[in-house]
Design a protein around this nucleic acid. Structure first.
Ligand SMILES: [Mg+2]
Length: 201
DNA sequence: GCGACAG
DNA sequence: ATCTTGTCGC
């Protein structure tokens, strides 16, 4: 089984070379958000679509968790479910927020990167804690650095969270997005979290 | 070898 | 992520 995990890690290393991190994105809406909740082996992925403060759509997809949780390999557990929920959306998001990191990952290929590569849509990873890297700088918007290179931001406004590009979007665009969000945790992700949990009750 | 380790 | 009740504070 360790061989399988090593194989999956090698796949991440190769796929990371296919990421597009030079795309300037200036239009973020309609914006989608993805999250997954669990109840034993049962899993529920939720995709929401928002425009301003209006929740345009809310779709959920239920199934059994296809893969266990292994730090660094979260994409193999949640991406398949998130993609199914995403496909249920009728509207087309200009950007997707994912509950989990983007390139702020040991091999530069987190959950948000997988979603971005598989959809071609700009994706941004939003984590509530650090998987890899350290925070540098000061102020409410700090730099998240890995191996001397900035891979994202540490955002502070009440609760602290970490943001990094998934794919199809540049680091500078992510910075503009964070400022556009007013440095606060995205309402869309709160909705996705709430409803993914709700559908398991 | 030991500790860290998204959700 | 989930397990879980009350409790401190705005
Ligand atoms: Mg979540």
């Amino acid at each position: 089984m360790n061989e399988l995990l090593e194989l999956l890690e090698e796949i991440q290393v190769k796929l990371s070379t296919l990421l597009r991190l030079d795309v300037e994105v200036d239009s973020f809406e309609p914006i989608a958000a993805l999250d997954v909740s669990y109840k034993g082996e049962r899993a529920c992925a939720c995709a929401v679509l928002m425009e301003g403060e209006e929740l345009l759509e809310r779709r959920t997809y239920l199934s059994d968790a296809p893969f266990p949780y292994v730090p660094g390999l979260l994409a193999f557990r949640e991406a398949p479910l998130m993609l199914r929920a995403l496909r249920l959306l009728e509207g087309r998001p200009k950007l997707i927020l994912v509950d989990g990191h983007g390139i702020a990952h040991p091999r530069g290929f987190g959950l948000a990167s997988a979603i971005g590569l598989l959809t071609g849509i700009p994706t941004v990873g939003v984590g509530k804690s650090i998987l890899v890297g350290r925070v540098e700088g000061s102020g409410p918007l700090k730099r998240l650095v890995v191996g001397g290179k900035q891979v994202g931001f540490s955002v502070e406004k009440g609760r602290r969270f970490y943001v990094s590009p998934g794919s199809n979007i540049s680091l500078s665009s992510v910075e503009r997005l964070v400022k556009w969000l007013g440095l606060s945790y995205p309402r869309a992700l709160k909705e996705a979290d709430r409803w993914s949990r709700e559908c398991l009750k």
